[in-house]
Amino acid sequence: MTELMAGLMIGGALFLAVYFVAGRRRRRRIEELTVYLENVNVSGEGTILQRKEDEFSLLEDEIYKTVTTLYRTRETALAAKENYAENLANIAHQLKTPITAASVSLQLLQEQAEDPAGQHDTYYHDAAKYRTTQHDATQNTAVQYNAVQYNAMPHSATQHTAVQHCENIRRQLERLNTLEEALLQLSRIDSGTLKLQYVQVDIFTALTIASDMLCELAAEKKVTVAIPEGECATIRGDKDWTMEAFCNLMKNCVEHTPEGGTVSCEYSQNPVYTEVRIWDNGKGFTEEDLPYLFQRFYRGKNASGTGIGIGLALSKAIVELQNGTITARNLHGGGACFEIRFYSH
């Protein structure tokens, strides 16, 4: 009996010891996890957690996954905030240029309206002064004739200048309208409110219509757009938006193709994707521009004077909305090339 009691006491003591040690271990692990979370919340440190295999392993894994996800979300939010601020600054800059140009033209028109005869009087008095100081009859006759010309010209010159100012204002307003439409399109894409009308789009037809939209620019630049008809290739997408993407890419090529050059297009289809290539025989992209071509408001080293840096970004967004990818590279023989792939699945 005594031995039984001694055994029970020893067993109870061992149980209490094990329970006590296990309790201390649990408290220590809970403290470690608590300190880890406190460090994450207070200082932003401690994302790396030393894993241990015990009864808290599952909880530890879930805590680590949650913290990692929150950190990624935070970094994404910060990047989006910085990108928003940068885009806002770029938009302000893009708006400032045409507004300033239009304001200057309006100011000059106003000055002409307030003093329409100012230029006329200057021409007239200078000519008269010159005429009275001459003694040679031939010179005097010539000066009288010039005075008559000057007397007639200022009004026409003023009209011509006014027309130029009005044309400049029209161009700047057109540029503002283009910027507004592009920003509206991008905002609809970003917000997910852009509704695509999915139909079977014939690639050859889409490329042809896109090139027709650029016929005036191509004629002005004396550039040919070549689209040989190949085997039938189609995608399931939005016809109008697909043509918009193609048009922006072609426009970029036309603007950077020398006079007499050619912008070429070709397409092919396989069970995995439909590929479209658009390239020119110009100078191609500069190496420093290649990583940033599809960024909004980015204008490369050889960008045209009227571009606003949205066309390529818009094309990329449209292609990606239709399960596609777009890349840009330089051809070995010279020239810039865009490659678009629309995936079937």
Rank of each mutant, 00 (worst) to 15 (best):
T286Y: 09
P258A: 11
G260A: 00
I308W: 00
C253E: 07
E181P: 04
A245C: 01
G118C: 05
T66N: 02
F56D: 01
N168W: 01
L179Q: 02
Q322V: 12
A313W: 05
E231S: 13
S211P: 02
L331W: 06
E220H: 10
K251P: 01
Q269T: 06
R170Y: 11
L217Y: 09
F15E: 08
F294L: 02
D202A: 14
E275L: 06
F204S: 12
A142W: 11
H125L: 04
G230F: 07
I326P: 01
K52A: 06
G300K: 00
D240W: 06
L176Y: 08
W241L: 12
L314G: 07
A89W: 12
Q144Y: 12
M250I: 07
L108I: 13
V254W: 02
E62V: 14
R72T: 15
Y273E: 09
A89N: 13
L88E: 11
D212Q: 15
T242C: 05
P291S: 07
V67G: 01
K129T: 15
K251W: 04
Y267V: 00
N302W: 01
E180V: 04
L33V: 02
E320S: 14
N39K: 06
D190S: 13
G11V: 12
S344G: 03
G334M: 08
Y71H: 14
I227N: 00
T306L: 05
I326C: 07
E220I: 13
L186I: 15
K195Y: 09
I10Q: 12
S344N: 07
H345G: 11
R329V: 09
T34Q: 03
I308C: 06
A6K: 07
P116E: 01
T158N: 07
E259R: 12
L106W: 04
A219P: 09
E181W: 06
T205D: 14
E180F: 03
E53R: 13
D212S: 15
K221T: 10
G307Y: 05
E45W: 04
V148Y: 10
C166G: 10
I169G: 03
Q269E: 07
T286R: 06
D136Q: 05
V225F: 00
T138E: 07
Y36H: 13
T208C: 04
S105K: 00
T325E: 11
F285Q: 00
E174R: 04
G44S: 05
Y71M: 14
L331S: 15
T100M: 08
M250V: 02
L95A: 07
G192F: 06
G230S: 11
L8K: 03
L37F: 03
A102C: 09
D240Y: 14
K301E: 05
H332A: 15
H332S: 15
A128H: 04
E82T: 13
A102M: 02
S105M: 02
S103C: 01
N248F: 08
H256I: 06
E180R: 12
